[in-house]
Design a protein around this nucleic acid. Structure first.
Lengths: 362, 362
DNA sequence: TTGTACGCGTTATCAA
DNA sequence: TTGATAACGCGTACAA
C-alpha cells in the first residue's frame, strides 16, 4: 500500500501530471499556476501526505532554518529555562533548535560547536567556558553566522543576553554591609573556567572594598566537595572568621545550608548565606534562600530575539543587561557577634528596601 | 582574506590538485589514495578549515544523523533531565538532538512532529498528549523512522521508556492504607490530555478498592488554580472529609502544602500529601515531600539506547519499566482522627519498609 | 501558464 | 590509484 520511501515533489508532480517546477510553485505559492493545475497538485500532495524535505531545501537555499544551542547542562534549571524561552521564540519564527550540552567541559564545548557548524546552522546561541578562545566560534563569525551568547557578561566581540554579574554581586556586598557583616567569603565552583563566576567575584570584591569590608575570601571547591556536605563543612571550617558567604549559585548556597550544622554553625545566626540565580526552589526551602533573582527564560527569549534580527541581516548590537532583584530570605541576618542581643537569629530587615536593578536603569 | 562563503570539498580538491572523489575518499578514509595525494588533501583541508556539510551528506546518504525530540516543556526539570540524558547518549553515537516543546498543547504536538519529520530526522523521542491519534506519528512509522516514547505507559504500537504509572500509584494507595487513611483524593492537572495522569489515577483507584479504601475523589484543576494557593485552598476545601491527597506530580504536591494552611489544615496532621516524580527539591523542603521517586535522566538514556538499536536496524521491543522508589517524607502521617493521641503530627513509620519496584521485578 | 535544466555539497559507481 | 559523473530533493532561471 504505502511506499516505504520518501515522497518527493517529483512524485507529486507525476501524480498531478505536471512538471516539478509547477508543483513547487503551487505548493510554495511562489508563482503562477492555473486554478485547475493548482487543484490537481494540492490534491495529489494531500493524498500522498507530501512534506517538503528541509534537507533538500536547505541545500538549495543555503538556509537550514535551524539554530544551534550550546549550554553546559539541561540538568540545571537555569539553563533549561533559557533554552525553553529561546526555543519558543525561535519556533514562532520558523526556526528549530539543535541543542547540545557540554557538561561544563571546555573541549566538548568546541567539539559541539564544530558539529553544529557542520550541520549548517543559521545561527548560534552559546554559553560556554571560553568564548574568546574558541576557534569554531571564530569560524562562525568568519562564515557570517550570527552568534548570541547567554549568561556571559558582554565580551568585546560578542553580544550577550545577560544580567550584570558584577552589579548583582555588588548588591550582595551592599546587603552584607547593611546587615553588619565585615568578613565575607565567596564560594565558587569551576572558578577558573567560568567567567560568570569570576565576574561575580570581581564585582563583589570591588564593592566590599568600596564599603570598607575586608577583602572577601575566595573559596574554590570541586563538584564532589559541593555534593558532600561533610567535606564542604570541612572546607568551610577553615574559615571560622567569616560571618557571611556569597555562593556563586543557588545550589551551592543550599549546600552551605546543609553543611553548616555539621560544623556546628547555624544559618543565619552564625553564618549568613546568599545565592545567585533565584531558582524557584529557593523560595520553598525551610529557610527561604536570600539570593539574586534572575529571569533565565527571558534571557533565552532576548538572546533569540537578537539572533533573529541578526538572521534577518540586521546589526546585532550589545544588549542591555536584564534586570535582577535581590530577594530577601531567611538565610541572611546580622552576625551574632555584632548584635549580641539578637540571639534568636531571626532575619532583621535593614532600613532600606530590597534592591532591584530596574530602579537604576531601564 | 577569508572567503565569506562556505568551503566545500570542491575547494579542497582544487587546492590539492585532485578530483573531488579523491578528496572525499581521503577525508573519509573510505578508499585508496597514494600517500602523497593523501598528504596534499589533508594539508589543504586543514589549511582552509574545511568541515563537511552535514546537509549535503544527509541528502546523499539519506541519513541526517539527527534525532527529533518532542516534550511538553523544558521548564519542568523532569523533562529537562530526560532530554539531558538522551542527548548525552545520542551524542556519543554521533547523533544530534533537535528539541522542541509543545507547552502541553495537543495541536502544537502535531505541528512540531510534522516539522521534525520534514527535517528528515532519523529517529524520534516523544512525550505528547495523544500519541495514538497522532497523524504525523503514524507517518513516521510509515516512513520506517524509529520512534521511542518517554514517560508514557507502553502503548500497543509504541515502545516507551517509562515507570509503571499504575504500579507506582498503587504503592501510594498502599502507603495511605498503612498509615490508616481511608478517604483519599487524587489531584490532577490536565487530566483529560495526560495518559500518565490517568494511568496514575487508575492504578491508585484500583489499589484503593483492593484495600477496601473508599474510591478516591478525582480533583481536576487548571494551571491557574494550581498556581494560586488561595484558589487551590478553596477547591480543596470542597472535600473536607479527605485525609490524604495524592498529587499527580511534585509541584502540585508542593502547591497543596502551601494551600493547606489557608484552609486551616496542617500537613501532615490534618492532611497527608504524596507527590510523583521525586524532584530534587522535595528533599530540601521544610517538610520533606513524600513522593514516588523516578529517574528521568535514566529514562531519557534508556529511550535513546532503544532508539539507537532501532537506528541500527534492530528491533525495538517493549521496554521493561524503570524502577521507582517510594520516598518517605514529612508530608505523610496517620490521619488525626484515626490516631487521636498523635497530636504532634510527626510521621510515624508503618511496620513495613518503603517499597521499591526493584524488589518485585528486575 | 508551464516545463526543462542546473546547481546546492556530498558520496557511490564505474571506467580509466 | 584516480577522476568524471550521477543522484539525493529542492528552488529558480530561462525558454517555450
Amino acid at each position: 500500500m504505502t511506499d516505504r520511501t520518501r515522497i518527493t515533489i517529483k512524485d507529486v508532480a507525476l501524480a498531478a501530471g505536471c512538471g516539478v517546477a509547477t508543483a513547487s510553485r503551487v505548493l510554495n505559492k511562489s508563482g503562477p499556476a492555473s486554478a485547475e493545475t493548482r487543484a490537481r497538485v494540492e490534491d495529489a500532495a494531500r493524498r500522498m501526505g507530501f512534506v517538503f524535505s528541509a534537507t533538500g531545501r536547505a541545500l538549495q537555499s543555503r538556509k537550514s532554518m535551524t539554530v544551534g544551542c550550546l549550554i553546559p547542562s539541561l540538568a540545571n534549571p537555569v539553563f533549561a529555562e533559557a533554552v525553553q524561552g529561546a526555543q519558543e521564540e525561535l519556533r514562532s519564527h520558523g526556526y528549530q533548535l539543535l541543542v547540545a550540552s557540554s557538561n561544563y567541559d571546555d573541549e566538548t564545548d568546541n567539539d559541539i560547536l564544530t558539529t553544529l557548524l557542520s550541520k549548517d546552522v543559521d545561527g548560534l546561541l552559546v554559553t560556554m567556558a571560553a568564548p574568546q578562545e574558541s576557534v569554531p566560534l571564530a569560524q562562525a563569525r568568519a562564515r557570517d553566522i550570527p552568534v548570541c551568547l547567554m549568561f556571559h557578561d558582554p565580551l568585546p566581540d560578542w553580544p550577550s543576553a545577560h544580567v550584570s554579574n558584577a552589579q548583582a554581586a555588588a548588591e550582595v556586598a551592599r546587603q552584607f554591609a547593611l546587615y553588619g557583616h565585615e568578613r565575607t567569603g565567596f564560594l565558587a565552583l569551576r572558578f577558573s573556567t567560568s567567567d560568570r563566576s569570576r565576574n561575580r567575584f570581581d564585582g563583589f570584591r570591588a564593592q566590599c572594598a568600596a564599603l570598607n569590608l575586608a577583602p572577601p575570601k575566595l573559596i574554590e571547591i570541586t563538584e564532589t566537595e559541593a555534593n558532600t556536605p561533610s567535606i564542604l563543612a570541612q572546607r568551610l571550617s577553615n574559615h571560622p572568621d567569616l560571618t557571611a558567604i556569597f555562593a556563586s549559585n543557588d545550589f551551592l548556597a543550599i549546600a552551605v545550608q546543609k553543611a553548616a550544622p555539621l560544623m556546628g554553625r547555624h544559618v543565619p545566626q552564625d553564618l549568613s548565606v546568599v545565592g545567585f540565580d533565584g531558582i524557584e526552589v529557593g523560595r520553598l526551602l525551610d529557610r527561604s534562600l536570600a539570593t539574586i533573582e534572575t529571569t533565565p527564560e527571558a534571557m533565552g527569549r532576548q538572546a533569540a530575539q537578537t539572533l533573529l534580527t541578526g538572521l534577518q541581516g540586521g546589526a546585532m548590537t550589545e544588549l542591555a543587561p536584564l534586570p535582577f532583584t535581590f530577594r530577601a530570605g531567611a538565610t541572611l541576618s546580622g552576625p551574632r557577634a555584632k548584635s549580641p542581643d539578637d540571639d534568636r537569629g531571626a532575619a532583621q530587615s535593614p532600613s532600606v528596601p530590597p534592591f532591584t536593578s530596574n530602579d537604576k536603569q531601564g
